[in-house]
Amino acid sequence: MQKVFGRPEALADVPTHYCPGCTHGIIHRLIAEVIDELGVRERTVGISPVGCAVLAYDYFNCDFVEASHGRAPAVATGIKRASPGSVVFTYQGDGDLASIGAGEIVHAASRGEKITVIFVNNAIYGMTGGQMAPTSLPGQKTTTSPRGRDPETAGHPVRVCELLSSLSGVGYIARVSVTSPANVAKARRALKKAFEVQLEGKGFSLVEFLSTCPTNWGMTPIEALKWVDDKMAVYYPLGDYTRVPEVG
């Protein structure tokens, strides 16, 4: 009998701690599939963030390092520079990447560090219990924006792909979601491209995933997927944000 579905080798055979309906799990699986497909598991070093994915090092079957909050791109830079043959990726939430680590991500991108960043944007601080994130939408209720995020006082949500796409060091940058089989397939292609850009030495690559947090959004998993499509994807349009280098 032909086996048509199984666990990727790069994914460890352990249960995860993610909440039911959280899309962190799908994203983990896609990364593992791409690592397997490219045959780089034994060269890969992952860097987990501070956030819900802090224990990602238990879930992947490759070398892993845990970074302090927001510093994963700096840690990745140190690993990649010291060991250029390694395939290095970070896995970061929106608080980690777009708030406390905003400096590190901008400079890793501008230097064109040959690393791949998996950016999981769930518009909230999941791990600490649902506080406002730099990517929380205008009007979004969180535990620190109980009346809804008011851009007048709490600022505007950060569009990371748009922000970074102006930097010349970026080799590939795209925003995807995993709300449907079609979107999952597109996300997988984007991830593969991001790792290929690293392997070809073409600079910094980043894939932003619009992801769910049913627990802190106070929604069912189905409602959460719909919120990604109807609300998040409007503020954060999906697509390839890689800028074609200007000539001259």
Binding site: V65, R71, V75, G78, I79, R81, A82, S83
Partner: peptide
Amino acid sequence: NMVYGAACAG
């Protein structure tokens, strides 16, 4: 933190 990374790589 880059030092941290390079130290991780030995």
